[in-house]
Design a protein around this nucleic acid. Structure first.
Length: 560
RNA sequence: GUACCCGUAGCUCAGCUGGAUAGAGCGUCGGCUUGCGGAGCCGAAGGUCGUAGGUUCAAAUCCUAUCGGGUACACCA
């Protein structure tokens, strides 16, 4: 509908004034109409005519163009053209199918990216929730989305953790690992990482040993050594990490198609960088291989260090190559924290020199960090970071305190909504109490709104005889407001998809629920002569909430 | 030092492809309440949109400068 109207106006502008205009229809305040455009204001200067005169000429055309859709066209203010749709047109918008703007496109969505041998922190939770939201939106628009996860099973952090593990075991004694209870493994390794990091900073001997361990890990990977004591420790603990990740993702309802461990991307990264070194893309500098981003207004970065080991940069190059080999994607979306924005520009710029189509198809979406409202007391023994479980536990605790319930699906919905409702990009301050509240702009508020709508429909179903499904009716004012809001659904989703911004869905769903609550407060549904129509509206509303919450990765309860 | 991001109501945030009186939630104050799920609804107070210039018929939105906060800038990831 919207697109048709825009086309009509564009055509009219061309015929009447022999010029082009960027016609964008917006939703003005309801008192003005259903759609509005300011083309006449844009054209006034160019054409040297008063905006209201231009608007009037266009309005005449619009009135003639689609009388079955348009009830009224009026000029207002400095020259806005306000269009009011017929009730029938408005009701038809409720059944419009979703726009399949990504139909058949192959998308690789990479997000979460935790490192084995390290703890999952709040940022991993945040990035996973955003990644899921974005992936869901793309899928909704018809894309074939491959959700993948990248993480460092080799690298200095592994050396640090391994060093401390060997200390804890009193030497390279893999047989002693059975003493660590399964439930304590992740915590045990997290402590080892912190201890290793401290030793690396404070103890020169330990540092040298950690550097050596790092090289040994690469050697273990290259040789696929599974028998030496160190290798046994490495593989066992690496497995523990992936078990821990899987359990965590299962808990938050995320499912990855595959993990790309750095050990798998390092060889192809090393090979690619070495090949391109010969072609002059990368260059030698102080014994290392770098890419000189200075030439492009960026900065220099090391891709292969002076020990011949690939850094994160080369591994990322390898990852891009592997994704391309395996998926031949139309689009690659990488979701990370915004601390690596500049880093990623350098990596992509380097790849652009030999595979320009890959960066061209890549979008790097970034977000800020999660802070707990009011701050938190954190133990340095645990690495002084906010862990993912800390956030989930805080939410569960708040939910228990505020609502007295313990439904993990509601708690999780509260966290997801709290993270997603803000525009992706900046830091977020997470308030557990606010997130679980049933009042205000929260996940549980929307989940409750859904349960309430479903409850009405359930009750109706039980009593239903023969519902009149005709929608050829005049809408009452309150009904019209409600329908008008529901009609925006597809447009909002389209925009969220186009801009990869899940928060647009949150904002809309909340406004929709508010609109319904106002309607419901002042109108009866079941024991009313307009029951048949209103039940259909409630059904359409519940369906939108259900689908919208699904896009956000949230559970839409029948009762709560 | 250089680059990038952010500064909107007491707090947390929308709005930023320039447009009609700058919106919402929380908090504060006041009203509705024998009710299809009141976990709601109605209303009030609260803003020099960091500051100063500029572009424009029109700027929270674009440009420049500046202040404040954050992040990144070679062998970590």
């Amino acid at each position: 509908m919207r697109h048709d109207l825009e086309t009509t106006i564009n055509l009219a502008v061309r015929e009447l004034f022999d010029t082009e205009a960027a016609v964008i229809l917006t939703h003005p305040e309801e008192q003005f109409g259903d759609y509005a455009t300011n083309v006449s204001l844009q054209l006034a200067g160019k054409l040297g005519q008063p905006p209201r005169v231009i608007a009037e000429a266009l309005a005449v055309r619009l009135r003639e163009a689609a009388p079955e859709h348009i009830r009224d066209v009026v000029i207002a203010g400095p020259g806005f053209i306000n269009v009011t749709l017929t009730d029938a047109a408005l009701l038809r918008s409720l059944t419009a199918p979703a726009n399949q703007s990504w139909a058949g496109k192959v998308v690789v969505a990479e997000y979460s990216d935790p490192n084995p041998f390290k703890v999952l922190h709040a940022g991993h939770l945040y990035t996973s929730i955003i990644g899921d939201g974005v992936a869901n939106l793309l899928e909704h628009a018809g894309a074939i989305v491959h959700r993948v996860n990248f993480g460092g099973d080799v690298g200095l952090h592994v050396g640090k953790t391994l060093w401390a593990i060997v200390q804890k075991l009193g030497g390279e004694h893999p047989e002693k690992l059975i003493d660590v209870a399964p439930s304590e493994r992740s915590e045990w390794m997290a402590e080892a990482y912190v201890a290793g990091t401290l030793a690396y900073e404070d103890d020169a001997v330990a540092k040298a040993r950690i550097v050596e361990l790092n090289k040994q890990v690469y050697a273990i990977q290259t040789a696929q050594d599974r028998v030496s004591p160190l290798a046994q420790i490495y593989w066992t603990c690496r497995g523990w990490s992936y078990d821990y990740f899987d359990a965590f993702y299962a808990r938050i309802g995320t499912k990855f198609e595959k993990y790309y461990p750095e050990s798998a991307t390092a060889p192809i990264g090393l090979k690619t960088v070495t090949e391109q070194l010969a072609r002059g893309v990368y260059e030698h500098s102080d014994g290392a291989v770098i890419f000189d981003g200075d030439k492009y207004g960026l900065h220099k970065r090391v891709f292969i260090n002076s020990q011949g080991l690939p850094t994160y940069e080369a591994k990322d190059v390898g990852l891009i190559m592997l994704k391309w080999e395996e998926y031949h994607f139309d689009s690659s979306v990488i979701i990370t924290g915004n601390d690596i924005i500049e880093y990623m520009k350098v990596v992509l710029k380097s790849v652009e020199q030999f595979m320009p189509q890959l960066p061209a198809r890549t979008t790097h979406l970034t977000h800020g960090i999660v802070k707990l409202a009011g701050g938190t007391k954190m133990s340095s023994r645990k690495g002084n970071i906010l862990r993912a479980v800390d956030v989930l536990d805080a939410a569960a605790k708040a939910n228990q305190a505020v609502t007295g319930t313990e439904d993990e699906r509601v708690t999780l919905g509260a966290v997801k909504y709290a993270f997603l409702k803000q525009r992706t990009g900046g830091d977020i301050i997470y308030s557990p109490t606010e997130s679980v509240s049933l009042e205000g702009n929260s996940g549980p508020y929307l989940q409750y709104a859904h349960a309430r709508a479903r409850s009405i429909l359930r009750k109706a179903m039980a009593e239903e005889t023969a519902a009149d499904s005709s929608l050829a009716v005049e809408l009452e004012a309150d009904e019209r407001t409600f329908v008008r809001k529901m009609g925006e659904y597809n447009e909002v989703i389209d925009k969220a998809v186009a801009e990869l911004l899940p928060h647009l869905v949150c904002t809309y769903l909340y406004e929709l629920a508010q609109t319904f609550n106002r309607f419901y407060e002042h109108n009866r549904v079941l024991d009313d002569p307009r029951r048949a129509l209103r039940l259909r509206l409630v059904a359409a509303y519940a369906a939108r909430l259900h689908e919208g919450l699904g896009l956000l990765g949230m559970y839409a309860p029948e009762k709560m």
